[in-house]
């Protein structure tokens, strides 16, 4: 275990690391359904333009990503692929669950083939509710996550409650 993971870094160094991490998030877009289009609007469209927040939307593979945005309906057939790609991401990694379907199943709460919440498969840091959420809501989720990362203590990662955008 390195010095960073052990959490024994001096405070100024930690805050320097955190500041640089929070403004260079590579977001892997796992677009599945309707929310994928709103995510595309938030990340790619000129009106919302996520890059001004220091988020880079187009990593070549999950192995280069710090943040994955699961947006849309997750079916049981898709679950193994999601888990596998999450496992491929390097630590520290964060997950945004975008939209009601990824949060809890949404309008398909009684469907036989839909996973009732992506948190059954991978740990989630930010829940963005809505069906689909507006692009502004996703940006709010990203900003809240950046605030969290800025204050993060390296040793205590994963111990906080997930953020719910409201």
């Amino acid at each position: 275990m390195g010095l960073v993971e052990s959490g024994k870094l001096p405070k100024p160094l930690t805050s320097l690391l955190n500041t640089s991490r929070k403004y260079s998030l590579w977001i892997f877009q796992w677009g599945l359904a309707c929310c994928a289009i709103e995510m595309g609007a938030a990340l790619g469209a000129p009106r919302y333009d996520v890059m001004r927040l220091g988020v880079i939307p187009l990593p070549a593979s999950p192995r280069q990503a710090d943040l994955v945005c699961i947006s849309g309906t997750v079916t049981d057939k898709m679950v193994p692929a999601i888990r596998r790609l999450y496992d491929q991401m390097p630590d520290p990694k964060y997950v945004i669950s975008m939209g009601s379907c990824a949060n809890c199943g949404g309008p398909y709460w009684d469907s036989y083939s839909v996973t009732k919440g992506i948190d059954q498969v991978i740990p989630v840091d930010v829940y963005v509710p809505g069906c689909p959420p507006r692009p502004e809501a996703l940006l709010e989720g990203i900003v809240l996550l950046q605030e969290r990362i800025g204050k993060e203590d390296m040793a205590a990662r994963w111990k906080g409650d997930p953020i719910v955008v409201s």
Partner: peptide
């Protein structure tokens, strides 16, 4: 296909 099958006709 089937990665987005949500069972509409049943719902």
């Amino acid at each position: 296909m089937g990665y987005m099958h949500r069972g509409y006709e049943k719902l």
